[in-house]
Each structure stands twice: as C-alpha cells, then as structure tokens.
C-alpha cells in the first residue's frame, strides 16, 4: 500500500450523503388509525394508504361478560365490537381496540373525524404494522436533515436561480398552488406561511432558522387541529440550521427533476424523485465548504497540507483548495480550509 498522505486527498474528506436508491419510507400511524393497503400492493404517489382518526381520545365500555375483542381490532361507529343484542358494546366514534383491563373494561382509541393519508411516492407496500406503513419507493431519495410537517407530493418548481439564493415572500403566489418549491439557502416563516396559504404542498431548502421552524411547527399544529384541515404540507431541510446553500449534488438532482412530481417524506427525511438519471458522478477532488468561512463555496481539493494553527489558537489538519467564483465579491481563489469543514460533493 502506498504511504503517501496525499495520494488520494479526497479520501481524507467526508463525502456528501448520496441519494438512496429505492428508499424505504415510513408513514406513521396512530393507535386509532386504519391502514387501507396490504403488503405487496403497488401504490401511486398521492394514493390514500391509511385513514387517520383525528382528535383521538380513549373511550371505554364495560364488557359485562362478553368476549373481549383482540387488541387492534377496527371499531366502526355504532357497530357492535363485542356482545350481542342489548349487551352489544358500541362506540360513537371509529377507531381501534387498545386493550381490556383486568376488571373487564374495554378501552378503545377513537377519533371524531377521519381523513385520508396519502403516500408521497409511488412504490410497493413492504409492511403494514400497527404503528407504521413502510413503502419501498420507486426512484431515489435525496436525504435531508429534517422534515417538518407531513409527507406530501407535488410538482417540483425550482423557485430560485442559485442554491445560495433566498426565496422572497413576494415571489410566492397562487401560481405555485400544488407545487413543491425549491427555495434555496433559507426560507423565513413569513414566506412559509404564505406558501401554505397559497396551496403550496411543500418547500425544500438548504437551511432554516430554528426560530422560524418553531413558529411553523406551531402553525402546522393549529392547522391540524382545525375542523377542516388543508392538504398536507412539508418543509424539507437538506443541510442544517441557519442559511445554508443547497449542496451541489442535491441541487443538480432537483434542477433535473423540475416539472416532475416529487415527494417529501418525514420518516426518514427524503426528497423523493422518480428518476435516478439526474444524479451525475462527481470527481473525488470536488469539494464544498460545509462550515465556517466561505460556507457553500465549491472548489477543487489540491492537497492536504497537514496541521496548521487555526483561529482561536486551535491546531488542525487543513487542505489547500482552489475555490471557484462564488457570488458577488467572491472571485476564484486558493485558500487553506480546515479539512473537517470540507465535504466532497459526491458520495
């Protein structure tokens, strides 16, 4: 084996998390929810796969000597779940049996309202459990850092010119209804709220400010609690918190998929694309600055030059990188960058 530290400098740099082919997507179920699909069933993006019982609560009834139904048994409003005739045990809401207490009390999870849960991707149902449905998606999944909101699907619209742009509030209009917007390096809570109100199905960004995420989550909770809920909406964050340009590999894949239907899943966080062809191979020495000064800039790794003294008196390995021109005021330049702050643009 060669002994040179610089034989393959790219091997010393962490690679981008690459797309996952045929990713498994999990759709969580509540204790009262009812699956509508079976294992092995093929589903198209947007197809209903479960019925969700909203405003869930625990209802109970005495069995009075009747045989206890199995845990998980579906309960229909007004339909006897145990016993017969005058001893029949019925509930006003629909849901599922939780369990029977030792004293003969039947406890059931019921919801006052039902709504359908759609799949964010086409694929095959791989498992149907009491707490989740797992779908093996067609195509690829671009991994994200986190998803807020619910799994969704829509037509992909790249709404910014560059991966480090920000989407202004005014750029979100009713023409984006039903779309999933690629919104660049950051989106603020005003733009998110407006997108939701305009019927946008989802937003994909490089970063988000934590405070905006909290506000959005609270707004989503209010939406879900309303009597008439709106279609599912999701925010997929690809890289982290704060303003963070969309990583180049993900940007290229999203640009290539523009105009096609794209899903967002929450568990795990994926942008679900229906084609794998969009992901081009990247040279091993192509890197991006993933943290610190010059965040988001792209360049070519020239060499690992060893340990150097860094700001705050810290010692660490650094690399010489030929950075491409960035935005305004960022000409091409060669710079020493801490090795830990670099990421290969390819896996």
């Amino acid at each position: 084996m060669p002994v040179s530290a610089g034989a393959d400098a790219g091997a010393r740099v962490v690679g981008a998390v690459g797309p996952v082919v045929e990713p498994r997507v999990r759709l969580r179920l509540g204790a009262g929810d009812v699956p509508l699909v079976a294992i092995g069933q093929r589903v198209a993006a947007g197809d209903p796969v479960a019925e969700r019982r909203r405003d869930g609560a625990v209802a109970w009834a005495r069995l009075g000597g009747s045989a206890a139904p199995e845990p998980g048994t579906a309960v229909e409003a007004g339909v006897p779940v145990a016993g017969r005739g005058r001893r029949a045990v019925r509930f006003a809401g629909s849901g599922r049996v939780l369990y029977t207490t030792p004293s003969g009390l039947l406890r059931v999870a019921v919801g006052r309202h039902a709504e359908q849960v759609g799949t964010p991707t086409a694929g095959v149902v791989e498992s149907v459990g009491p707490a989740a449905i797992v779908i093996r998606a067609d195509g690829i999944g671009l991994p994200g850092t986190l998803t807020a909101g619910e799994a969704t699907v829509g037509r992909l619209v790249v709404a910014v010119r560059r991966p480090d742009d920000e989407l202004p509030v005014a750029a979100v209009d009713v023409g984006a209804a039903g779309a999933i917007l690629v919104a660049g390096a950051r989106i603020d809570v005003e733009a998110l709220t407006r997108a939701r109100a305009m019927g946008v199905r989802g937003v994909i960004v490089g970063g988000v400010v934590g405070r905006d995420l909290r506000s959005f989550a609270a707004s989503e909770a209010r939406q879900r609690a309303a009597l008439h809920t709106s279609p599912p909406f999701a925010l997929l964050v690809l890289d982290g918190f704060g303003k963070r340009p969309i990583p180049p590999g993900a940007w290229a894949a999203l640009v290539a998929a523009e105009g096609r239907d794209v899903g967002i899943s929450a568990d795990p966080s994926f942008a679900l694309l229906d084609v794998a062809a969009a992901v081009a191979a990247e040279p091993r020495d192509r890197v991006r600055v993933a943290a610190g000064e010059g965040l988001g800039r792209i360049g070519r790794l020239l060499e690992v030059v060893g340990r150097r003294r860094l700001p705050a008196g810290v010692l660490g390995p650094v690399a010489r990188v030929a950075l491409e021109a960035g935005g305004p005021g960022q000409p091409p330049e060669e710079r020493l960058v801490p090795l830990a702050d670099l990421e290969r643009t390819g896996p």
Binding site: L310, A340, D341
Partner: peptide, 11 residues
C-alpha cells in the same frame, strides 16, 4: 448534526 465541523474560532 455534524460534530466534527466548525472546530476553529468560535466553533
């Protein structure tokens, strides 16, 4: 999310 990054300066 990425504990190894941003290890100099304020990091």
């Amino acid at each position: 999310i990425a504990p190894w990054r941003d290890a100099a300066g304020d990091g």
